[in-house]
């Protein structure tokens, strides 16, 4: 390719807009921690120094939904809480992704009772489910990488 060589000599890099934006998005995931129960403790370990999720390009937890693009719902969601979770989800700017962490968020888990939503996918578009009660931080890191793979395959921004 003559163009690439010619540009490279002048210090330019040739790439696609999609590839560049998706690469940037995938490697700067800012999670919104929706810690509702004991899964939140494992989620804190996932962000802490021992497991250090920064190594995989998910730098900081943002407690403001306006600054986050990945919501980790960690714990059982009651009908009462589901309205707050949905409200925070609606406040997050696009593009955004959602993870149901643990058995309770994925399916209601052991909380098979009238007051608990039997899986947050009943009101949120979930991208990844994590099994476990609670899941270990390694699994959360693996899920983050799965989400990153998904982000890298996003459709073209030019089609929006």
């Amino acid at each position: 390719m003559g163009l690439e060589k010619a540009l490279a000599k002048q210090g330019f890099l040739l790439t696609k807009v999609d590839a560049l934006t998706n690469w940037a998005r995938a490697n700067s995931m800012w999670p919104m921690p929706m810690g509702l129960a004991c899964c939140a403790i494992e989620m804190m370990a996932f962000a802490g120094p021992q497991y250090d999720v920064s190594r995989f390009g998910s730098e900081v937890f943002r407690f403001s939904p306006r600054q986050a693009d990945l919501m980790i719902v960690a714990g059982w969601t009651t009908y009462k809480m589901s309205h707050a979770v949905k409200r925070i989800w609606d406040q997050m700017p696009d593009p955004k992704w959602c993870v149901a962490m643990g058995a309770c968020a994925s399916s209601g888990g052991m909380h098979r009772v009238y007051g608990v939503v039997q899986g947050i996918d009943q009101f949120l578009p979930v991208d990844a489910y994590i099994p476990g009660c609670p899941p270990r931080p390694e699994v959360v890191i693996h899920t983050l990488q799965t989400i990153q793979e998904k982000v890298k395959k996003e459709h073209s921004v030019l089609q929006d």
Partner: peptide
């Protein structure tokens, strides 16, 4: 809901879910 005759998983539609 703590009465014995109340079904464990509740009565569908009695508790509100957020709008899509």
């Amino acid at each position: 809901p703590m009465r014995k005759e109340f079904p464990q998983l509740g009565i569908p539609g009695t508790l509100e879910m957020p709008e899509k």
